[in-house]
């Protein structure tokens, strides 16, 4: 059996980010932290995509995660960054557990559009809820780590460090999950559910589990984004947010658990550079770069790394 290099590679990347963080300019720290938050959501989408499901509504869980973290601060003045992330993850995972009974029955476009519809319902509700700031949303309390609040210059680094560690643990767990029998079943479910059933497994049950995992990761990402940006609004549940996550998933590819984070980072860089160069037509640059990836790297950016291994 070939040795899995992923955990070691991940550990090296984490160490490098933690070491370089204090010396990096603030904007790169921010860019990286947001990329890690989005990467967590995309990691979940990757699990779903491996069994052939595209969720056009993953922003639902991103938003629930963010609002769960925000509300904990607003109502109970909780500011511990780990507590907020745990709350985001649990709120999204629990919602997905319930909705999963419905969604795990659907496939292809029906699954995609149903998830989109549910995320837009949440968007509609939040926009109309004045207690939560309607379309303006609300600000979060400054984050603390185990009751300690660092000096202003170090807050961003602290959130980055927490984000890196959380993303590292999540990636390792998902990497292990993908190697379990249930994780490995994904391509089989994508190819032939009849056979899966006649081999003695329930495709619906497997999809339900994957759906909850994906949602929990999105909730974690949402809570992390909320603490990083310090502000949340209903836009987090809007369909364009979901679109962005799918964009990154396709850009990254589903080959490895590192791919979502790499994809999210490159997405962030392209977006910032494009916005800088042409503030009015930056979407065009983004669209063109996706087109280039689809044409030349149909399996996403990760195929650049896996190609050498295959030959």
């Amino acid at each position: 059996m070939r040795r899995d290099l992923t955990p070691r590679t991940l550990a090296l990347i984490v160490a490098a980010i933690l070491a370089a963080g204090p010396f990096a300019p603030q904007w790169t720290v921010f860019l990286l932290t947001v990329a890690l938050a989005k990467g967590l959501v995309v990691l979940g989408l990757m699990i779903l995509l491996r069994c052939g499901l595209v969720s056009f509504g993953q922003a639902l869980y991103y938003c629930i995660g963010a609002y769960a973290a925000g509300l904990l601060g607003l109502r109970y003045e909780v500011s511990g960054v780990f507590t907020l992330m745990l709350a985001g993850m649990l709120a999204s995972g629990a919602t997905a557990f319930v909705l999963g009974f419905l969604l795990a029955r659907y496939r292809s476009i029906f699954f995609g559009l149903l998830s989109l519809a549910i995320s837009m319902i949440l968007y509609g509700l939040l926009v109309k809820t004045e207690a939560l700031g309607s379309s303006d949303g609300f600000n979060l309390l400054p984050s603390t780590l185990a009751g300690f609040r660092p000096a202003d210059a170090w807050v961003r680094y602290m959130v980055l460090a927490v984000a890196v560690v959380v993303a590292f643990v999540a990636a390792l767990l998902v990497n292990r999950y993908l190697k379990t029998p249930l994780g490995r079943l994904a391509p089989a479910i994508k190819d032939n559910e009849i056979r899966v059933e006649y081999m003695g497994a329930s495709a619906r049950h497997a999809i339900h589990v994957k759906y909850v995992i994906a949602a929990a990761l999105a909730g974690l990402g949402g809570a992390l984004a909320a603490t990083t940006v310090g502000h949340i609004d209903p836009e987090m549940a809007y369909w364009t947010t979901s679109g962005e996550f799918i964009f990154i998933t396709i850009l990254a590819g589903t080959g490895n658990v590192i791919a979502p984070f790499l994809g999210a980072l490159i997405f962030g860089i392209i977006q910032s550079v494009a916005f800088d160069i042409s503030p009015n037509t930056w979407q065009m640059v983004l669209g063109s770069s996706l087109l280039v990836v689809i044409v030349f790297l149909p399996n996403g950016l990760w195929s650049l790394f896996s190609r050498g291994k295959a030959s």
């Binding site: 029998p181 490995r184 079943l185 391509p187 190819d191 032939n192 009849i194 056979r195 081999m199 003695g200």
Partner: peptide, 29 residues
């Protein structure tokens, strides 16, 4: 034949074995 079309013959077998392991509660997380 009901196969996993995008997988190799070996991977087809491994997917089947995966289900057997899972049903026996083996090879889990």
């Amino acid at each position: 034949p009901q196969l996993y079309a995008s997988l190799t013959a070996f991977e087809n077998m491994m997917a089947g074995i995966g289900v057997v392991l899972r049903n026996a509660g083996l090879g889990g997380f």
